[in-house]
Structures are given as structure tokens and as C-alpha cells.
């Protein structure tokens, strides 16, 4: 056993023999760390997370999550992770609460605990009553918040959050950020992908700047800014690549 929650060695993912989405990625995430993946569209963030969570098979390389190999022991990994996919994936005909509880049942959490935790998550993510409306009638931001809640129902040790706050209003985004900081206090490991500079700067202890499937720079946000004499991580990215991470919203 290592101290690392996630350990990735020489990870390569090539789609259809032509698109290299992840290009020889090496990465260690410490237990209890909030680790950010920052990079432009198509950099390979989602692909990496899909491999870490066992959804995608790597082309080559080794990935150990929570001490388990993703290829040999994907079932063990599923028990200790929570994943918030980039595209909200929920049952429209179920209520927000029912969606959270459904996934709780798939994790075989005791009924009583599911109920408690669902209530807690709904409260934390600013749902008052709307939790019992059907998801298909939700606003985009509400869907996103339930999407995050589902990822956390099993109180996972390692959480993958793929662009969790896209499309949320500032209040909801703050609620999710607070939540992520709470996770840190409970010694949970969080891997967060984002292209919100502010999000990465505020939350992450270390940021891996990823471009074309490679980590081109890695470090604490403040240290990176110092190193490149930049005001923001955006400037850091520009200094390295000559490009912007994203268009301003």
C-alpha cells in the first residue's frame, strides 16, 4: 500500500487508432488531497477520469486507485469512488431525491443511512422542497447539483468531479466548493477537472495543467503563479502554451 490515492504510470489512451486523448500521463495524487486537472477543451481530462473510474480501458500504462489496479480490480475500485460525470446523468422521470436514493441502493447502503445522507446532501446543495420534483422539470443548475449529490451518496474515499460546477449560479457554485472543502476535512481525495481558473485556484492544493493529453505543468497554484510571474493560472497557461485555456464566459 502506498500513501497515494491514485497513482498513474505512462498512461496512454488512443481512440480508434488515431486520436491520442491521453499521451503518456504520469500522476500521483496523495490521500486527502484536492487535485485539479486544468486544461482546454479536448485536453483529455474526461478521458483520464473515465479510465481512473474504470469506465474506459487504457491503451497502455498502469493506473492504481485506492490501492487497486483499474484493469485487474475494477469492482473493488467502484466501492470506494464517487463519480460526477461531466454530462449530468440522471433519470428524468425520478425526483432528485429518488435519483440519489437509487444510486445509494446500487451501492447497497443501508436504507436508513441512504435516507439520512440524501437529506443531508439535498440540504447542503440548497434544495428545499425541490428535491421532490422530477428531474426533467429542473433547471440546468439544479440538475448539476443533483448530479454532484449522486456522486457523493456512498460517502466515497475518492471523488472524481468532472466539471461539477459548469452552468451553476454563483451561490450553487459556492455551495459545491464548500462541500469539496468539507470533503478535504474528512480526508477524502478529490480529483477535480475544471476550466474555471478561480475554481482551481481556490480549491486545489495541486493543479496539473493538461494539454493534448500531457501534463505540461504541475504544482500548487500559488507556486505556479510565482514561478511564471503570473497573476492567474490562466496567465500561467498562456505563458506555457501561448494559448488561452478557455474563452471568457
Amino acid at each position: 500500500m502506498t500513501d497515494f490515492a491514485i497513482s498513474v504510470k505512462n498512461l496512454v489512451k488512443i481512440f480508434d487508432n488515431e486520436v491520442t486523448a491521453v499521451d503518456n500521463l504520469n500522476l500521483d495524487v496523495k490521500k486527502g488531497e484536492i487535485y485539479g486537472f486544468l486544461g482546454p477543451n479536448g485536453a483529455g481530462k474526461t478521458t483520464s477520469i473515465n479510465i481512473f473510474s474504470g469506465l474506459l480501458q487504457p491503451t497502455s500504462g498502469e493506473v492504481i486507485v485506492g490501492g487497486f489496479d483499474v484493469i485487474k480490480n475494477p469492482e473493488k475500485i467502484k466501492e470506494i469512488i464517487g463519480v460526477c460525470p461531466q454530462e449530468p446523468s440522471l433519470f428524468g422521470y425520478l425526483t432528485g431525491r429518488q435519483n440519489i436514493e437509487f444510486f445509494g441502493n446500487l451501492h447497497c447502503i443501508p436504507k436508513e443511512k441512504i435516507r439520512e445522507r440524501t437529506e443531508f446532501l439535498l440540504k447542503k446543495l440548497n434544495f428545499n422542497g425541490e428535491g421532490d420534483r422530477r428531474v426533467k422539470n429542473y433547471s440546468g443548475g439544479m440538475v448539476r447539483r443533483i448530479n454532484v449529490a449522486v456522486a457523493l451518496i456512498n460517502d466515497p474515499d475518492i471523488v472524481f468531479l468532472d466539471e461539477p460546477t459548469v452552468g451553476m449560479d454563483p451561490q450553487s457554485r459556492r455551495a459545491v466548493w464548500e462541500f469539496i472543502q468539507d470533503l478535504k476535512k474528512k480526508n477524502k481525495t478529490v480529483i477535480l477537472t475544471t476550466h474555471y481558473i478561480e475554481e482551481a485556484e481556490q480549491l486545489c492544493e495541486r493543479v496539473g495543467i493538461i494539454d493534448h493529453g500531457k501534463i505540461i505543468e504541475l504544482g500548487n497554484p500559488d507556486e505556479l503563479k510565482q514561478k511564471y510571474k503570473a497573476k492567474t493560472l490562466e496567465d500561467v497557461f498562456i505563458k506555457i502554451t501561448g494559448r488561452k485555456i478557455r474563452e471568457e464566459i
Partner: peptide
């Protein structure tokens, strides 16, 4: 299409 089948497979089911 909604990605929920995929998501179910992120649990130990």
C-alpha cells in the same frame, strides 16, 4: 443516451 446506464456501472452493480 442519458448516460445513466454508464453511471450505474460506476457503482458495483
Amino acid at each position: 443516451e442519458k448516460g445513466v446506464l454508464k453511471r450505474m456501472y460506476l457503482t458495483p452493480i
